[in-house]
Amino acid sequence: MTDSIRVLHYGIGHVGGEIARLVHRRPDMTSVAAVDADPSKIGADLGMLFGDDAWGIFVSPDLKSALQDAEADIAIHTTGSFLPQVVDQLEELIEAGLNICSTCEDLSYPALKRPELARRLDGLAKSKGVTIHGTGVNPGFIMDKFVLAISGVCQEVRHVRVERIVDASKRRPPLQLKTGAGLSPEEFLAQTETGAVRHAGYQEAVALIAAGLGWKLDRVEETVKPIIATEPVSTDVLSVEPGQSLGLHQEARGFVAGRPLIELILEMRVDRPEGYDRVVLDGIPPMDVKVIGGTHGDRATTAVVVNSLASVLAAKPGLATILDLPLALGWGV
């Protein structure tokens, strides 16, 4: 590997594009190739896609063509949330000898719900001598690694509660729609069952906390419910009438010896709530840490991914979770 980390971008959507821009600003990293299936992006200069000067990197339709004239150390993968939908992409990247840092929420702790796929990816990565890692802001930081970092000052921890309240009215259109805002209760329920309305990765975050604290989980329960409007609300993207959903209230609970020792609570709503992130640990000493205004999801996800690259490259081959890597550190300027 050269002194500069050579990055292949696999997926140039909103988050993938933000990541590419951040990598371009980092003096210790170099973008060398990009892959995206969108016909409107194929052949385009990566920099010019973002209104920047030309970078001399052109978007390829597939991995083979992307690597014809480029050598990469690691692929940043940003195409999907669910492992069954992206496992073929991940395996192709591993077969090409690339380390991977992915925003796929399932990949943050795939042993929980996809144990067979986890074993398959782990075995393939080890055979190729590369590391594969799933991360982001959540899962990947706010509701798991941040919690575990705070627990480091506790002699013991008896209960974990995490709250994340997000003002979705300020977020990009796809995320506003993902909250279920503007749907009737019946439409909301139907879309939660398909996975169109919910935040992926919450059960994985519970499992990561439990594993980090040495708790053996009995089970994880998850619920997603609409927050019903009592008055009209509108954003630049959508309108909500009384009786319709303002957004979602999602909870995940981890049970240990029959008791709910881990509680994760998420609200994403468009009626402009005061956003915050809060971690409450019942322990010795007790801890109550609140991030006023909350953590911006897209910007933080971009940062966590890029700040994790060096650690992924330094890790042992195989499937690595946040428990296997050091805390990602920011870049001082």
Rank of each mutant, 00 (worst) to 15 (best):
S4W: 04
R6Q: 14
V7Y: 10
M29E: 12
V35C: 14
A37R: 11
D38L: 12
L46K: 07
L46A: 11
M48P: 03
D52P: 05
A54N: 05
W55C: 05
W55F: 13
I57Y: 13
V59M: 11
K64W: 00
S65D: 12
Q68Y: 02
Q68I: 08
D73K: 02
I74R: 07
Q89Y: 02
E92Y: 00
L93T: 04
I94L: 01
L98D: 03
L98G: 05
N99Q: 03
N99G: 04
C101M: 13
S102L: 08
S102P: 05
T103F: 10
D106W: 03
S108M: 00
A111R: 15
R114L: 01
L124Y: 07
K128E: 05
T131I: 01
G134K: 01
T135V: 14
V137R: 03
V137F: 03
V147Q: 04
I150K: 09
I150H: 03
I150S: 10
V153C: 13
E156C: 08
R161S: 08
E163W: 01
I165D: 00
I165V: 15
D167S: 12
A168Y: 09
R171K: 14
Q176P: 08
K178S: 14
L183V: 00
F188H: 00
A190R: 15
R198I: 03
H199Y: 13
A200I: 07
G201E: 06
Q203Y: 02
A205P: 07
G214F: 06
E221P: 08
V224D: 05
P226R: 06
V233L: 06
S234V: 01
D236E: 13
D236R: 11
S245N: 07
L246N: 01
L248V: 01
H249N: 12
G254K: 05
I262L: 06
L266C: 08
R269P: 02
E274F: 11
Y276T: 04
R278H: 02
R278A: 03
V291M: 10
H296T: 12
G297D: 09
D298M: 14
R299Q: 14
T301N: 02
T301H: 08
V306K: 09
N307Q: 15
A310H: 10
A315M: 09
P317T: 05
L323P: 13
P326R: 10
P326Y: 12
G332E: 15
V333L: 15
